[in-house]
Write a protein that binds this DNA or RNA. Structure first.
Length: 507
RNA sequence: GGGCCAUUAGCUCAGUCGGUAGAGCACCUGACUUUUAAUCAGGGUGUCGCUGGUUCGAGUCCAGCAUGGCUCACCA
């Protein structure tokens, strides 16, 4: 649906689209410089520019680069003028390098041009590499090209941009002036790549399943709602790819994975962003024990590939990601930490009174089932204490509607979650492939939904239909990429590993 | 959603008891051909988040609102 009447008020704007009254002095001066540049016949916004080297390469290979001629480009980050000669640092994607420009070398006209440039301007330079008296590797400029005029002043060179709100809202500025931020996102990119390499090498096939779904399934969460105009169709942004990936197992793909976004219409916190990245994989003829082995191997090898070590420091705590992680059934973990033995507590009623008797401070709902209460006790008493990587096994069936029941205890499932630093990093199970049980589980969820639980699963008839054709037994695994990257980059907030986190509009 | 905190120049931050709005960086003018948080001389560039209130007088006190941060709740 195209909009035909876009509001355009160019009359009140000056070139650049900013209204004149919004311009402070610093921006006004830069616009004047821009106009002056044009008047003198220089184009402030250049074109293709071929570079021979990066800043990093020159710095790292000074021995072979000394006195070599180089062409590079970057943003001016600092300037030190001394009459007929100037020093400056320019920054490209690899780092900063000093340049030295003398009137004698480039001629008075070019030198004059350079001396009027601002911090933030993007230029190309060519010249030869040398070391200054103080030992800094520097490019002695022989000529320069204007590539982009910057019309806004950058934050201060010494303190950088600290205002958290501005850093998230204008990430591009954050990235320009705070080099450590860039490093976080490089690590994020390498992490995702490492996952792909690992899984591809294991024979998994990367697939893409719908982001917009008729029935949002595969997780317990409130979805975002959207609408398709020509079909006049209510659609949901997916909360998980799970049910579609398992349809692929039915279709005959044995090993599939997807790394992509999920959307959940819930609270925002240091650990939750409405859209986040999930890796989900399914392996036919495997079970949750295989998934534990795979999780360990995958995360430790990804850490090794990205950081060169399986020993990480997170917020002052040393975490050891080398394989051999603790595997403990939920019942046992809860018993150890709370004293409550849910293997002898058999009913919801007994569970309610046991919690009360133990004096555990929990908000219990009368409708809570045995499994709900077990999970709440776990969340409260156990989860925060799981600092080193720990697999918690055998979740109650009530909160695991897609997992296979344990053969020796139908109240529990072959499901585990991985916790590191008190946070859930992975969730996995032996997939439920009995269509009749699955339909019954969905029906239970639908009841919960009718009772007002907006997060309960919906009935997905087509998924049942798929299971009825026969799905091979399989292990499935989901890993929250953002939270894992937080661990690998030692960042406290999920917003620090998301380039453009969701922010309320300012006005 | 609740609680606490923050919001002052482009950026980082001061601002006392309610009495004419401050610093550093950046910027402007001038000097300076190996500087590096360059230096030296001069220049303050502002809707003190917004709206009300109290007061002779509000950046400062009060109320409401907005945005953000932390936290609790919610939530994988």
């Amino acid at each position: 649906m195209g909009q035909k009447n876009k509001e355009t008020d160019l009359s009140a704007a000056i070139p650049g689209g900013v209204k004149e009254e919004d311009l402070n002095d610093l921006m006004q001066i830069r616009r004047e410089k821009l106009n002056e540049m044009r008047q003198k016949g220089y184009e402030p916004y250049g074109n293709r520019f071929e570079r021979t080297h990066s800043a990093r390469f020159i710095l790292d290979n000074y021995g072979e680069m000394e006195y070599k001629h180089v062409i590079l480009a970057g943003r001016i980050m600092s300037k030190r003028g001394m009459g007929k000669a100037s020093f400056a640092h320019i920054q490209d994607s690899t780092g900063k390098i000093q340049i030295y420009i003398r009137s004698n070398d480039v001629g008075p006209e070019t030198y004059e041009f350079f001396s009027k440039l601002d911090i933030g301007d993007i230029i190309g330079v060519h010249g030869s590499v040398f070391k200054t008296r103080m030992g800094e590797v520097t490019v002695a400029v022989e000529g320069l090209n204007m590539l982009a005029k910057s019309l806004r002043p950058l934050p201060e060179k010494w303190h950088g941009l600290k205002d958290v709100e501005l850093r998230y809202r204008q990430r591009y500025v954050d990235l320009i002036v705070n080099p450590e931020v860039k490093e976080v996102f490089v690590i994020r990119s390498k992490t995702v790549r490492a996952f792909r390499n690992f899984l591809d090498a294991k024979g998994f096939l990367e697939v893409e399943t719908p982001m917009m779904q008729l029935i949002p399934g595969g997780a317990t969460a409130k979805p975002f709602i959207t609408h398709h105009n020509t079909l006049d169709l209510k659609l949901f942004m997916r909360i998980a790819p799970e049910l579609h990936l398992k349809r692929l197992l039915v279709g005959g793909f044995d090993n599939v994975y997807e790394i992509n976004r999920n959307f959940r219409n819930e609270g925002i916190s240091t650990k939750h962003n409405p859209e986040f990245t999930m890796m989900e994989l399914y392996q036919a003829y495997a079970d949750y024990n295989d998934m534990m082995d795979l999780t360990e191997e995958m995360i430790s090898s990804v850490a090794c590939e990205v950081l060169g070590s399986t020993l990480i420091d997170y917020q002052g705590t040393e975490i050891d990601l080398s394989p051999g992680w603790t595997r403990i059934p939920m019942l046992e973990a809860v018993k150890v930490r709370s004293g409550l033995d849910f293997s002898v507590i058999k009913t919801a009623g007994e569970a309610h009174s046991a919690v009360k008797q133990a004096g555990i401070n929990l908000e219990l709902d009368p409708a809570d089932t045995w499994g709900d209460i077990l999970n709440k006790v776990f969340d409260e008493m156990v989860e925060p204490k799981l600092i080193q990587p720990t697999f918690i096994m055998d979740y109650p069936v009530e909160i695991s509607p897609l997992a296979k029941r344990k053969a020796d205890n139908p109240d529990l499932t072959y499901r585990f979650e991985l916790f590191i630093y008190g946070r859930e990093i992975a969730n996995a199970f032996s997939e439920l492939n009995d269509p009749i049980d699955q339909k019954a589980r969905f029906a239970k969820q639908v009841e919960k939904r009718k009772a007002g639980d907006e997060e309960a699963h919906m009935m997905d008839e087509d998924y049942i239909n798929a299971l009825e054709y026969g799905m091979p037994p399989a292990g499935g695994l989901g890993i929250g990429i953002d939270r894992l990257v937080m661990l690998l980059t030692n960042t406290y907030s999920i917003r620090d590993v998301i380039l453009f986190p969701l922010m309320k509009p300012r006005d």
